[in-house]
């Protein structure tokens, strides 16, 4: 039987891992290559990288942190294939066909598209034909408005598309995305649980796998969204960054509760 995937999300800003709260406050948490190794050893089922840098340049003033391993995003991405023996999705800053190609070549299994999916959909479709639908993940960010409508945003949540979530789901599938990563922006960094209602509606509607993101504050939040919906995978960022062996502990919690996850295990790939 196919297992429910538990996926840590690593947010990168100017070359460092950051913690995010409602897409605005960002706190530096350190070395991205070390994080890949860690997540791999803790038995993560997959890894999602989202680059949220506003500029292309790395913060080179941070010489206090050991960053000899990576000087630019390309270094981070090539560090991926050397150190990650699990599937990896790279998202953020993907605007054109060649951005997708570069990321796949450097070892990513999937590339996440957000703004591009709505502003340049034909290029997404073209990429699906060249690389296969399995290589494209639609990162759909949404907010719940005053009328309890779920509306989609792009440009890191800063630009409203006016689209309803359900229409964006169909749009993404029609343009060749083989998977959907749904993120409720209101819940980003809030730690009060996933948007079960929204996720449930999307999973029912979608013919491709859905990954839920946004709102995990404790392990039981992961359990709840898996029990209440037919989601294929559960992703979280902050909750996996602060605790040693976090992914292992999350999987152990779920496994002990009888949830269909891959057996929790610590790995040493050497």
């Amino acid at each position: 039987m196919l297992k429910k995937r538990i996926i840590p999300v690593i947010l990168l800003k100017n070359g460092f891992i950051v913690q995010s709260k409602r897409y605005s406050e960002h706190k530096n948490l350190g070395n991205p290559i070390a994080a890949i190794k860690r997540m791999s050893e803790w038995g993560a089922d997959e890894l999602i990288y989202i680059d949220i840098s506003k500029s292309k340049y790395f913060d080179e003033s941070r010489q206090d942190l050991n960053n000899e391993e990576w000087r630019n995003l390309d270094d981070v991405y090539s560090g991926l294939s050397r150190n990650s023996f699990m599937p990896t999705c790279i998202a953020g800053g993907v605007r054109k066909h060649s951005d997708i190609e570069v990321r796949l070549k450097s070892g990513a299994d999937k590339v996440g598209v957000n703004t591009m999916l709505f502003q340049n959909p034909q290029e997404v479709k073209k990429a699906a034909l060249s690389f296969g639908v399995q290589s494209l993940v639609a990162n759909i960010d949404y907010r719940v408005d005053g009328n309890n409508q779920r509306r989609v945003y792009v440009e890191q949540g800063s630009l409203a598309t006016g689209l309803l979530l359900e229409d964006a789901v169909q749009w993404a599938i029609d343009h060749g995305c083989g998977e959907l990563l749904l993120q409720c922006i209101d819940r980003d960094g809030a730690g009060r649980g996933y948007d079960i209602e929204g996720i449930n509606a999307c999973v029912k509607q979608s013919s491709v796998p859905v990954i839920a993101l946004g709102g995990a504050g404790k392990w039981s939040h992961l359990e709840l969204v898996i029990r209440e919906t037919d989601v294929s995978a559960v992703a979280a960022a902050n909750i996996f960054q602060f605790k040693d062996q976090s992914v292992f502990l999350a999987k152990k919690y779920l496994f002990d509760k009888g949830i269909n996850v891959r057996k929790p295990q610590l790995f040493n790939m050497d």
Binding site: M1, L2, K3, R5, D45, V133, Q134, G178, E179, S206, S207, V208, P209, V210, S232, A233, R262, K263
Partner: peptide
């Protein structure tokens, strides 16, 4: 079920072989 088939699935051996243990994801 959603398609593509994406994720970890456990192997059911039809023939004994030395390559994969039964039930390995």
């Amino acid at each position: 079920l959603p398609i593509p088939h994406i994720g970890w699935n456990n192997i059911i051996n039809k023939q004994e072989n030395s390559f994969i243990e039964d039930d390995m994801d």
